[in-house]
Write a protein that binds this DNA or RNA. Structure first.
Lengths: 186, 186
DNA sequence: CGATGCATGTAAGCTGTTACATGATTGC
DNA sequence: GCAATCATGTAACAGCTTACATGCATCG
C-alpha cells in the first residue's frame, strides 16, 4: 500500500533476492557463494557490495532476518517476505526491454573488432588461446548442467542450458574466425 | 622505456582506442556515436565518461589531438600514437583470462533461474515477450552484418558474425524454454 | 531565424570493487 | 592447537551514469 519499495531492483539486487528465495533461510555468506559459482563470473560478490545491499533490502522490508539459535558469530538467517516476492516478480517482468536484451557486454567480441592491430602471428596465437579457454569454460558450464538435472528447481536446468548453448555458439564462432584467418593468410 | 602507461587498459578505454584507430583522425563525439551503434548497448557512451577518458589517454600519450582547422567549436581531431598502438595490442592480448571469458553478464539468463517466482501464465507471457524482442534484436545484428560485409576491415564482419551467431543461439534456447514450459503445463 | 545536430564539458551520484579488519567454528 | 572455512563488516576508491550547461554549424 505504501508507495515505498515500488522501485525496480538493480540487477544484483534481483539476483540476490532470487538466490535467497531459492535457498531460504540462508546467510548472506551463502548468497555470496552462490553468486560466485554462478555460470557468469560477472559478479565478484564482494562483501562490500553484498552486505550493505542485503541490509538495504531488509530495511525496505523485502527480506526478513532472524538470528540463528546459538551462533556466536551473529549468523543471520535471511528469508524473503511477501513484499520481497512481489518485488522479485516485478524485477523479472521488467526485464524485457530492448536495451536490457542488447546490453550483454562481451569482452571477447569487443576485441575481435580491433584484431587488425595485431600481426598475423599474434592473432593466430590469440585466437588459439581463446578457443582453449572457451573449451574449458564450456566443460565447466556442461558439468553445471549435469548437476542442475537433479535440481528440484527445473529452471536451474533451463538456465544452465542457456549458458551451454551460448558458449557452444561462441566456440563455434571462434573456430570459424580461426579458419577464416588461416584461409586468408595461406 | 618509461614504466608509465604500462598499465592494462579498462574495457571502455580499449574499445575507445580501437575505435579511434579505425577512424582516425576523428572527434570524441564520433567515438561516442560509434559506441552507441555497437552491437552491444552495454556502453551508454555518456559524455561524462568518454570526454574525461579520452583526455586521460591523451595525457598519457596514447592519443594525439590536433585542433581542426577553422572550427569555432574547438573541434579536436584525435589519432592514436605509436605508444597507443602498443597499449591497444597489450589490451587485446590480455583478454584471454578465464574470468574475462566467463564475465559475460546476461540479464535474461539471470532471470531464468528465478522463473518459478512467477505464475505459469506470467511466465508464458514473459517468454513470449522475450522471444519477440530477441527476434527484433537479431534482425538488427543481421543488418549490421550485411553492412559489415563491405567494410574495408574484415574484422568488422567477423565480429558482427559473432553477435549474430550468439543471438541465434539465445533465440534457439528461448524457444526451447517456451516449448519445455508448454509441455509441462499441458 | 529557428530547429536539429555537432561538439565539448562539469557535478553529483550510484554501484560495485579491492583491501582491510575481526572473530567464531570445525576438522584434523 | 592450528589451519581452513564460516561469517560479518568498513573505508577508500574506481568507473560509469544521469542531468545539466554551453555554444557553433547547417539546413530549410
Amino acid at each position: 500500500m505504501t508507495a515505498k519499495a515500488q522501485r525496480v531492483l538493480s540487477e544484483l539486487e534481483g539476483v540476490c533476492l532470487g538466490i535467497i528465495r531459492a535457498h531460504q533461510p540462508c546467510t548472506a555468506y551463502r548468497v555470496r557463494q552462490e553468486l560466485r559459482q554462478a555460470p557468469s563470473s560477472h559478479w565478484r560478490a564482494s562483501a562490500g557490495s553484498v552486505y550493505p545491499l542485503l541490509e538495504r533490502l531488509e530495511g525496505e522490508g523485502l527480506l526478513v532476518a532472524r538470528a540463528a539459535a546459538a551462533d556466536g558469530r551473529g549468523k543471520q538467517l535471511l528469508s524473503i517476505s511477501r513484499t520481497g516476492d512481489a518485488s522479485l516478480r516485478r524485477w523479472i517482468l521488467a526485464g524485457t526491454d530492448m536495451d536490457l536484451i542488447s546490453s550483454v557486454s562481451d569482452p571477447v567480441r569487443s576485441r575481435t573488432f580491433f584484431l587488425d592491430a595485431l600481426t598475423a602471428a599474434q592473432r593466430a596465437r590469440y585466437i588459439d588461446a581463446l578457443i582453449e579457454r572457451t573449451e574449458e569454460y564450456l566443460a565447466v558450464t556442461n558439468s553445471r548442467l549435469e548437476k542442475a538435472k537433479n535440481s528440484r528447481n527445473r529452471f536451474d536446468y533451463l538456465g544452465s542450458m542457456g549458458a551451454v548453448k551460448v558458449t557452444e555458439a561462441r566456440l563455434d564462432w571462434l573456430r570459424t574466425v580461426r579458419a577464416e584467418l588461416a584461409r586468408k593468410s595461406a
